[in-house]
Structure formats: structure tokens, C-alpha cells
Design a protein around this nucleic acid. Structure first.
Lengths: 181, 181, 181, 181
DNA sequence: CATGAATGAGGTTTCATTCAT
DNA sequence: TATGAATGAAACCTCATTCAT
């Protein structure tokens, strides 16, 4: 009973935090997050000892979903479309729900440390890349650093500038052109 | 006579603000900027009535330099290399000196309004693009929205993740490949 | 349960504010009020979003007490003494506890708006006046504007100059002579 | 030449200070006074070492004018009308040009000390009072303390509430009735 | 265990005063 | 001598965090 309650509270807090922080920026008050979640601030602090910890949790949560999507596509029949679909999906996600990558970078939080060991998002993405390259759908000289750099870049800009679907599609088309052999 | 002093102080303040804000983010205390500039906080507030105003001034200053570079390249003999050199230069700039585009977006500052009318950075970039397209060095379907989106994206990521020269070069190569016909 | 604590704190804040502001004027630091009340500054700001709001609250509180006194006397057997007793009482109050009418005027606070609808102090005073005039204890040509003007005048001066009881009595005697038929 | 300049500057500063402080209250910035006077703040500080000193100077100036008026009326043929005319004149003055008596009280400035020895405003007023009493136009039991209390009271209220001529006349009529035998 | 009132350090901003020009 | 830029203390106010209820 209690565990169910706690679980639901945690989910509500994460959801509220994601929404509020996306809307009002990293400096949004904890009060506002609590209000949005319909709980007291103390309830948040029970789960997350610090505001930073709450941010980390959001990122971890998002990375978890990202890793799931990557893994789901890593066994697709067609490696090329799977790879580009994942890329497009991530950017779309960033536009709609925000990733906070920038905010987190700015806050000096070490995201890698927080997610290490929990699940292997990097490995999942690498699988998508390698398979696409083996299928000759992505140029061989594209490495993980470049891929992550491009992913981050498009996510950040999509989020910051609020790319609409049209702009997102046409811009990604250029990037995809650059990735293809 | 005092004017010279004021001018020098203003320059020092802008320089210090750029450095401190790049280092500590948008939430860096004004005190720190003042200390870095070697002036009192009141001196900053005399020139910039608000923290936001200071940010705007930095962005305006940076845009001015950008516009100058764009214009300088807009009459180059080879439009293609000029275009890509400008792109690379902007991203390099973002890595080294920061642009604060993200911070400014987050703060809800309308950068366009602040720079409108002073100089035409957009026009200067458009000239570069058009000339490169006429020289068949850039695909015809690339428009200003896509170009600005890609510029913003790479600048943001380069700044956030601290791209080194190697990563910058290889990543931009992919983007440039995408832009070329 | 916490409500009781908050209520007591609110009372302490109002009391402290009244005392400190009466002593040090409108420019007394909030810190001093907080110290006097034995709370943190944040506690005051939780109840009163702004310094002005705190002032308003004090005035409203004082007006409430004034209205109560006026109403209590409005059914007295002898309308004349009741009227003059009220007048004297208000001035005595101003001397002892301050009314801040001046401070509030200076701050540009619309006191009437703040108290309107809550209780009818003006009506209560008008009743006292009308009854005293019907009993032929106050000249017929005295209207509410003149009465309020005289009340304000004596309160302000009593507060500013710190009238002692002797001066208050003798000065009011002159004013009362002027009000009597 | 210089002396003439300085004299004119001093007058301009005093006038500007009176206007600005009357309009914006005691907390008006020195900058604003300087701007209104058309001089730099340094020029004010050359004449008045401190803001308080400037206030004092304004009060002294006003008292000087008041004393002049009192003396001018102290030899009038009819002591009664002279006395009441002076009273009315002072209140009218307070309405139009403000006296800052309250502001000065609030600032804790000892006005008496500042004016002592320079001219005898108190003596001039006392002469008016005594002559009016000898002419049986003012009640004998009215003393200087009561008179000054009433003057201050009406001036303060007139200033604070912005008495129009009508209210001023009718209210003073009541006070004058109280002063008459 | 959840709540939200209280805390108080620290942020932005103002302004009396000084002093180089 | 007049100016106004610079100073920096101190004001108001916010908000992460704690803790009594």
C-alpha cells in the first residue's frame, strides 16, 4: 500500500519536475514543482536529498527511456532506417519533452557517473550505428563521438529554438545526408 | 577625459561578464563579475540597469563581431570555401568564447529585438549562403532556417560539451557533407 | 495545529512591525522588524509579499480597532460625550501606538481601497457625528470632511511631536470648543 | 562673479530639493534633486555636506520666510485679523509648497537647534498671539504650545491629504472658532 | 510519512557619498 | 569649481532546505 503510494508520488514528482523545469528553466523553485506534483516540498526532499539529485533522476529516467528505444530498434530488420528513426525520434523527444542536457551541463552535474552501471545507453546506440554502417547505410568514418555530438547538437537546438516539425524534418535531412555514404 | 576611463571600464566589464558567465553560467553573481572586472557592482549597474541588460549587451557585442566576419567573407573570391570557413569560424568561436545563446534563450531575452536595426547579421549570412549556392557549393534546398538551425545546434553543443578541435573538425565535416550537393 | 503557531507568529510580526516602524519610520529595515519579532525575514515575506503589504496590514488592523471603538460608542446614552470621547481616544491612540497615516500616504498606498468592504469605519464615525449633532452637541455645519480633516490633523501632529497628555488635553479642548455650537 | 553664481546655484538647489522632496518623499535620490536643479550631485555636496544638511537648509529657509511674514503682520492695525490671517497663510503655504515638517521629524532632525539664534520665529508668532489676546480676539488660555500644536496639525494634514481651498477654509473656521473667546 | 511554515544566506538592485578629471 | 562615474554598504526579496506538527 505504502509502496504503491510512494511509487506513484515519485512518478508524479518526476513528471512535474520535467514539465516545470522545461517551462521555467533550471531556476524554477522547488515550491513550483511541488505544487505541480500536488505534494508538499518535504515529500520531494524525502525522495531526493537535493535539487541536483532531482535533476539527476530526471536525466536518468530519460536516459532509461532512450536506452529502451535504442534496444528495441537494435534488432530491427533494416539497420539503416532503424538508425535514422532512432535519431529522429530522439530529436522529436527533445522538442516535445525537453532533455535538460544543457541545464544539466550548466549545473555541472556529471551525467555519466549517475547513469553508469545502470543500463548501457551508449552500447545500445553503438549497436545501432555499427549495424547501419555494416549495412552500408552510414559512412564508415562516423564514430560514436561524432554521433553523440550531432545528437546533442540537434537536441539542444530543437529544444532551445522550438523547432517545428517542418524545420526539424528539413534540418535532419541535411544531417542525415551528411551521415550517409 | 573621464569618458576614456568609462569606456575602458565598460570594456572590462563586458569582458569579465563574458568570461564569468561562460564559466559559471547564467546564475553567476554580479559580485563575481564585478570582482573579475575590478570594479564595484554599482559600476556595472550604472551601465546596465539589470542583469538581463548586461547579457543582452554581451550578445549584441558578439553578434556585431559575427556580422563583421560574415561581411568580410561575403566578397571573397571563392564563395564555397568562404561559406564553410564562416560556419567553422562561428563554431570555433562558440567553443572558445561562448555565445550564451542558451543562457539567453532560457532567460527569455529576445535577442533579435535587441540587435535589430543595428546591423544586419542575418543579411550578411544570407549573402554567404546565396553566393555559395550560386557557385553550386551548397545544395539549393538549404534555406536560412535550416542554416541557422544547424549553426545554433553546433554552437550550442560545442559550447556545452567543450568540443576539442578534433571532434569539431570531424563533426563539422559530416554537417558540411550534408550541406554540399 | 501549525495554524496556531502561524497565527501567533503573524500577531508577533504585526506587533513588532508597528513598534519598529513607529520608532524608526517607514524606512526601518525588514531585518529589524524580523529581529524584534523573533523570526526570520522570510517568515514575514511569507505572510506579506512586500513591505507595502505589511504596512497595509498594520493600517487595516488599526482601522479595524478604530471601527470597533466607534461602533461601541455609537449606541451610548449621551451622544455628545460619546463623540468627543471617541475623538480624544483616537488621538491618544495615535500618540501611543502611532497610526502611520503619514508613512502610508507617503508610500502612496491607497488605504481606503485596502479596507473598503471589510468594515465601515467611515459609517461608524458618521453615526457618532450625526447623533451628536442631533443632540445639539456639535455644530450643524460640521461635515464628515471637516471632521476627518481635524482627526487626521491632530493625530498626525500628536504622533509627530509626541504630544504629552497635558498638551493633548489643552489642544483638543480648543478643537472641541470649535466643534461645539 | 563666482559668488553670484554660487548664490544662484544654492537657490536653485534649494528650490529643486523642495519640489522633488515634496513630490517623491524623503527618500528621493540626491540624483533626482541634482537633475531637477540642473547641476551635478557634487555641486550639492559642496554646499551641503550631507542629505540631512540639505533638509535642514530647506526648513531653515522656510522658517525664515515664515518669520518674515509673522513680523510683517506683528504691527498690523488689527491684531485679531492679523493673527488669523497668519494662521491661514501658513496652512495655505503648507498645502502649496509643503513644509517637510513630518519628513524632518521622521529623520530625527532637531529643527529648533538649526534655527536657534538666526531669527526668532517663535517670538514673532508669540507677538501675534499676545496682541490678539490683548485685543480680546483670542481666548486667554491659549498658549504657545497649543498654538504651535494646532499650526503643525493643520499644516501636516493639509499637506498629507491635499486639502483643497474649500476644505481648508471650512476646517480652519472650526479651529478659529475654538480659538476665539 | 506528508506537510508547509520557518529559516537565513545570498541574490539583485539602489543610493549617499567620494574623488578623479 | 563643477561634474558625474565609481564605490560599496545595505536594502528588499527569493528559495533551497529543515523540522515541528
Amino acid at each position: 500500500m505504502m509502496r504503491a503510494d510512494a511509487q506513484r508520488n515519485l512518478a508524479r514528482v518526476l513528471e512535474a519536475a520535467e514539465e516545470v523545469l522545461a517551462r521555467d528553466g533550471l531556476s524554477a523553485p522547488m515550491r513550483e514543482i511541488a505544487r505541480q506534483a500536488g505534494v508538499g516540498v518535504g515529500t520531494i526532499y524525502r525522495q531526493f536529498p537535493t535539487k541536483e539529485a532531482l535533476y539527476q533522476a530526471i536525466v536518468v529516467d530519460r536516459k532509461r527511456r532512450l536506452a529502451e528505444e535504442a534496444r528495441a530498434l537494435s534488432t530491427a530488420a533494416e539497420p539503416g532506417p532503424a538508425f535514422f528513426a532512432f535519431f529522429a525520434r530522439v530529436v522529436e523527444d527533445a522538442t516535445a519533452k525537453k532533455v535538460f542536457a544543457d541545464a544539466l551541463s550548466e549545473a555541472g552535474i556529471d551525467v555519466k557517473a549517475a547513469t553508469a552501471g545502470t543500463y548501457d545507453i551508449r552500447g545500445a546506440i553503438e549497436t545501432l550505428l555499427t549495424r547501419a554502417q555494416r549495412a552500408d547505410q552510414v559512412r564508415a568514418e562516423v564514430g560514436m563521438p561524432e554521433l553523440l555530438a550531432l545528437l546533442t547538437a540537434t537536441c539542444l537546438a530543437a529544444q532551445h529554438q522550438g523547432w517545428d516539425e517542418r524545420l526539424r524534418t528539413s534540418t535532419l535531412e541535411i544531417v542525415f545526408n551528411g551521415l550517409r555514404p
